[in-house]
Design a protein around this nucleic acid. Structure first.
Lengths: 335, 335
DNA sequence: CTGAAAGCGCTAACAG
DNA sequence: CTGTTAGCGCTTTCAG
């Protein structure tokens, strides 16, 4: 038999579809006996309410879209876990999509989300200019930006203290006695990339250390650039004594390069990285890292989104900044 | 203004909604001039077709559900990438959900998927008995099982050669001269867990090596059990000379334990693991591993699903088995 | 080539 | 407490 509908149930239970609807939605006001009959019919028919039809009339899908720029970066799945848990708890379903850092893909995905009438969106955009968000803005759906801000539109935003984290990291290196500190930056047109550089700069300035051009390299937050830039650092006549890597993937690349170059970590060069990596405690010496509250980031993002979706007061957009934490191990002190 | 509908477009372009529908769906048979007028109206109104309404009448959502048991296991995101790419290419959208190895969560997720009328399902079930799949089976939606088979129902299935892979791994250890080979098994009530043990057993049998109870430990495919069981192995009076770990996460745990115990990898104990891990080339010596074609797994799964969704011939269910590959590095030969 | 109209399955008044 | 009915926005005959 074809998929049973609310009408099939109604017929079988000898009631109207309105009554069936009432029990499905637990609205009460149905005689116990009638309800029992309906429940039985539902059971027997294997009836499953059709959410598509429901959305059609309720104009809400209880679905939120999540857009991240890189699934292969373990940072994001962790953030997503935070979002998902909160969402599930609140009766929302999530649709997760990956743009691979392409603003164009982002635009397409947004289109699909909009067609499917998501109730809200949590996004780490591939392009902070925000041009590609146009359609979503026009559609007036609630949006929360996570980890990266958006310039063109005023959005609710939840970030981590990039400047602060990078500042602490750099200062830690300085406290260990290093002066020739190199930084492998992220893209300077992204908030995390730029702010982490700013934190580095602030610490260097504060302790009267010069900013050396050769020690300031810009990568793209991917593993390959970590490898390449580390090699570049190694080739310099006057090698840095310490390296600060701006994110997890570049840290991976950096460490791989160190191995390959036989540039001895903890002996010839000190290291500190932004973001946790799996290998932190495997390499020798273990890596000192700036770690971010990833799940928390997702949870906060959903909370804000939920408020926007349910409350209509629509006050001013909010900007949250969570604090990172310095996780000290042994890679910063040279023996 | 509220979200514009097809009717708004029709009015603005001075045509009927039927005609608008025709151009939205590129069905042709519309005068060029009329079409142009409609396109303009769509543009001006920022009209986005409502997929919910469409699904309502077409009875298809162009959405497939994906259920995996553990997002934190890098194996699955990789498989999912394979699925997603193929899906997107074919105009399908994917909804990804994680059960955390809970059959109960799986049942709930299935219910949600069914309510939302997914067109098909790709699943790595949390419980191979398959009881919890009932509703999906009843709903008669196409299902493809990946990585784990389902006992209760006859399903299209795509697996990797677990037995073969484990056999090769164990044999490799034997070829390196090891005899006291321990195995950290996965749950024996799962296909991958059981079959990998079978491969181990086959190799041991074939080369006349005894199966020692103390060397055969059962874990749960998670990191913690890798740690615990490795410690258990270490505590034995007669320690094994080599360890075969049945999956990536347990490999991580195993290596961590080795470090902690100061049980020297590559000197006092050899190691081989099933599945790739990030740290493979970071530890010293680098790890020899059995690696699986993860993306391919996802691609094949989608191909099969697509056929089931589009063709109605519905022949017998198919079982695919992809081949794993032995990735030899240096962790199996003791110095 | 274009329009009118009948639903798709469900919710939400409104009546009884 | 329960039933009737009017849509939700769109696709799809069927007529013109």
């Amino acid at each position: 038999m074809a998929k049973p509908t609310i009408e099939d149930v109604a017929k079988r239970a000898n009631v109207s579809i309105a009554t069936v609807s009432r029990v499905i939605n637990r609205q009460g006001g149905v005689r116990a006996k009638t309800e029992a009959r309906i429940l039985t019919a539902i059971e027997e028919l294997n009836y499953i309410p059709n959410a598509v039809a429901r959305s059609m009339v309720k104009k809400t899908t209880k679905t939120i879209g999540i857009i991240i720029p890189d699934v292969n970066n373990p940072f994001f799945p962790e953030v997503v876990s935070g979002i998902e848990q909160k969402a599930r708890e609140n009766g929302y379903f999530t649709m997760l999509c990956n743009t691979n850092e392409s603003a164009e893909t982002e635009r397409e995905l947004l289109q699909i989300f909009l067609e499917r009438s998501i109730d809200g969106l949590i996004i780490t955009t591939a392009d902070e200019d925000g041009e590609q968000l146009q359609a979503a803005i026009d559609a007036k759906i609630p949006i929360v930006a996570v980890d990266r801000a958006v310039k063109k539109y005023e959005l609710d935003t939840v970030l981590v203290g990039n400047i602060d984290g990078a500042y602490q990291a750099t200062r830690h290196l300085i406290f260990q006695g290093h002066q020739k500190i190199a930084i492998i930056c992220g893209p300077q047109n992204t908030t995390p990339g730029y702010e982490r550089f700013l934190g580095y700069k602030r610490a260097m300035d504060e302790y009267g250390l010069p900013l050396v051009n050769e020690y300031i390299l810009e990568g793209d937050f991917k593993e390959a650039s970590g490898i390449n830039l580390t090699k570049k650092l190694y080739q310099q006549a006057d090698r840095p004594a310490a390296i600060f890597s701006s994110n997890n993937l570049m840290t991976m690349g950096c460490i791989k390069a160190l191995y390959e170059l036989n540039w001895k970590l903890g002996e010839e060069v000190a290291f500190i990285g932004f973001d946790d990596v799996d290998i932190a405690t495997f390499v020798n010496p273990p890596l000192t890292l700036v770690s971010r509250p990833m799940r928390k980031l997702g949870e906060v993002a959903f909370d804000i989104l939920l408020e926007r979706m349910t409350r209509s007061d629509q006050g001013a957009k909010r900007h949250y900044v969570l604090s990172p934490e310095l996780n000290i191990r042994q890679s910063c002190r040279l023996k």
